[in-house]
């Protein structure tokens, strides 16, 4: 608990809401926390990859709907982008996650890396379109959808899904976008909101607004 200071000669009341010059340079804490999120997501990617085989086998009887599972590999970029709020955060986090799942070993080998880059870009482009200054739910959902579009295009062009009939490809593409919106967009936004409330994001702008800072309760 931070006690109120008796010697606060300068008024600091408005300071927390005052606009500061935007700083797009990554601090060390940005890099390390983005990496940690990326690494943690990478482990989940890997586990998702294991679960994917049986799940997609079930969905294989409804061809194209496997796209619904794609969101499991898309949330890292949106999550990183929403927390770090710096250009490149979505791509970086998604790539780290892809590389980590690749290090542990996935059936997609090095193409995992290429997928990571493109999926990250899908989310990144949306965040960039909003000039890295809007972090509301709508933008998070769009970023998730952006990643879904990216993976939908990739999968239906370069993977075994490329061999599917056109109708199935469309189903796949739409399912991937829906999955990205929900699993990557909505879940990431909820996670960031929850994280902010635990005070874990105190060094990030994402953790300072909307959360009740302990000292705010006193003053």
């Amino acid at each position: 608990m931070h006690a109120t200071t008796t010697s606060s000669h300068r008024s600091t009341r408005q300071a927390s809401t005052a606009k500061k010059p935007r700083n797009f340079r990554w601090r060390v804490v940005d890099i390390v926390v983005a990496s940690v999120i990326g690494v943690a997501s990478g482990v989940i990617f890997w586990a998702w990859g294991l679960a994917w085989s049986p799940l997609s086998a079930i969905l294989a009887f409804t061809p194209g709907l496997e796209g619904l599972l794609a969101g499991g590999w898309l949330f890292a970029g949106v999550l990183g982008g929403l927390i770090i709020r710096k250009p490149g955060a979505a791509v970086y986090t998604e790539v780290v996650a892809a590389v980590v799942s690749m290090l542990i070993g996935t059936q997609w080998g090095f193409s995992t890396l290429i997928w990571g880059v493109v999926e990250g870009l899908g989310a990144e482009i949306v965040l960039a379109l909003f000039l890295y200054s809007n972090w509301r739910l709508g933008v998070a959902l769009l970023a998730g959808a952006g990643a879904g579009v990216a993976v939908g295009l990739l999968d239906t062009t370069f993977t075994s899904y490329a061999a599917l009939d056109f109708g199935y490809k469309v189903v796949y593409f739409v399912s991937a976008v829906v999955s990205g919106t929900v699993l990557a967009g909505l879940l990431s936004w909820l996670a960031v909101r929850g994280l902010a409330r635990t005070g874990a994001l105190s060094r990030f702008a994402a953790g300072r607004e909307g959360s009740r800072a302990p000292s705010a309760a006193i003053s």
Binding site: V32, A40, L195, L201, S202
Partner: peptide, 23 residues
């Protein structure tokens, strides 16, 4: 919980790295 714990740990690790001249 794991996400909370790891973000915290990451923040501390960042400080420790900066304290060793990194960044």
């Amino acid at each position: 919980s794991l996400l909370v714990i790891s973000v915290r740990r990451g923040s501390k690790l960042a400080t420790a790295m900066e304290a060793r001249g990194f960044g």
